[in-house]
Simulated assay, not measured.
Amino acid sequence: MSGPNTNFDPVEVAVLDPRAIEDAVTSALGAVAAATSLDELKSLRPTHTGDRSPLAQANREIGALPPSAKAEAGKRVGQARGRVGQAFAARQVELEAERDERVLVEETQDLTVRVPRRPVGARHPVNLVSERVEDIFVSMGWEIAEGPEIESEWLNFDALNIGPDHPARQEADTFYVAPAGSGLVLRTHTSPVQVRTMLDREPPIYVLCPGKTFRTDDLDATHTPVFHQFEGLVVDEGVTMAHLRGTLDAFVQRLFGDGIVTRLRPNYFPFTEPSAEIDCQCWVCRGGSDAEVKACRSCGGTGWIELGGSGMVNRRVLRSAGIDPDRYTGFAFGLGIERSLMLRHGIADMHDIVEGDVRFSRQFGMEI
């Protein structure tokens, strides 16, 4: 049986060659010195101190050496690994100090500056538009009238000449309040406020009825099940369609700008007769040249924008409210606040209005 190989020279093992070990240390020290960030330094560790690094491979070869060679080879490899480890530690301290100094400069805060105790909010543009409209009509001598959002079917439909078979009374359009047969609905318009006003007071009547209304629409880019509208009502002696037209012209000029006019297109509504759709001259192209009108995106190249419905109060509606239709006449109109807001400011999606993101409201400031 042969004895141990006492003549084995560790230099003959390539990875244990002093020159190879020194080259590995030099390469590691150079890479460490060139690292400019902590992330870069971290990425260098597997290459120079990991299990597959040259010094780690050399350390594993020591176990195959004879006892007489292990001590010297172990000392040489251990010192080399120690130098590399110290270089990594020293460079990490330097880079951490540089990072901390940079953070102090880049992220410095002036603690003497006073900051608001509460985040700055904004009023919702629907409220701003509603108040703007109310101010316009109050300045014309009108009053503001309000009513409950849960209404009786009689006030919401029957008193307005909307019969039992009218499509608007179906559950596909109207929210009915449980239990079935309660006779209560979430109002589909603010017209019941007009009926309440006519029941409570004697003409002359000049009221604006703003408020929240409900219909069974899905929320999409142009519809919402909960929306706001305002309706106007005038009942007096000698009231004609000319008074309606003059009122609408005065209103749109105050809201959209001087020189804007309206036009009325014949239509049918159960609670007015005759009835008309209200169109407003486009406040962007103002019905200019043919080329300007065709290029206008606000009015779709027509020069006019549809606002809502209007007409002379139906004699049946006056009679149901206890007003003599042979002595008094009146007119009424209704416009959606969300629609006015979308038209006036080019808002394309109803979601922006209803989702309550304060960033949307801040665009309008405190006045519209």
Rank of each mutant, 00 (worst) to 15 (best):
S139F: 10
G356N: 06
L208E: 09
I62A: 00
I162A: 03
F364P: 11
D218L: 13
H351F: 07
P167A: 03
A295E: 15
V358M: 13
S320G: 08
S53Y: 14
T247P: 00
R339A: 09
R265H: 05
C280T: 12
F227W: 02
E143D: 11
V261N: 06
L264M: 04
P203Y: 06
S152W: 14
I305L: 08
V235N: 09
E292R: 09
A64E: 10
P179T: 14
E231M: 11
R245Y: 10
N161T: 11
G300V: 14
V354H: 05
G330M: 10
Y206D: 12
P54R: 03
G78V: 01
L184C: 09
W304G: 08
R102I: 12
W154M: 03
G183H: 13
R81Y: 00
P67T: 12
P210I: 14
S289Q: 08
T302M: 13
S152N: 15
N267Q: 02
R286Q: 09
G82V: 08
R316Q: 07
L341E: 03
G303R: 01
I136P: 06
V103I: 15
Y176L: 00
P167W: 05
E22Q: 12
S139H: 12
S340W: 12
T190S: 04
G63H: 08
E355T: 06
R245K: 04
P203M: 13
E22V: 14
S275V: 02
G336P: 12
A242L: 12
R265Y: 05
F256A: 11
G74K: 14
G259Q: 05
G82S: 03
W154E: 14
A35S: 07
E61A: 04
S53H: 11
L233V: 12
I136H: 02
F360C: 09
C209N: 10
V32H: 01
C299A: 08
E202V: 01
E153F: 00
G3F: 05
G365M: 09
E98D: 14
R319I: 13
R102D: 12
R169G: 09
T36K: 14
E273T: 13
D110Y: 05
G30A: 13
L16R: 00
A90C: 01
E306L: 01
T272N: 00
E94L: 03
V313F: 02
E367L: 15
L318V: 11
R359P: 05
M366Q: 15
E231A: 07
H243I: 08
R76C: 01
T329G: 02
A58Y: 08
D217P: 02
S191Q: 07
Y206T: 03
C280F: 00
D220P: 00
T222V: 11
F360I: 12
A159S: 10
V354P: 02
S2T: 12
A31D: 14
H351P: 00
P125E: 07
A276I: 11
R91V: 03
E355V: 04
E61S: 09
G50C: 07
M1F: 04
D324H: 08
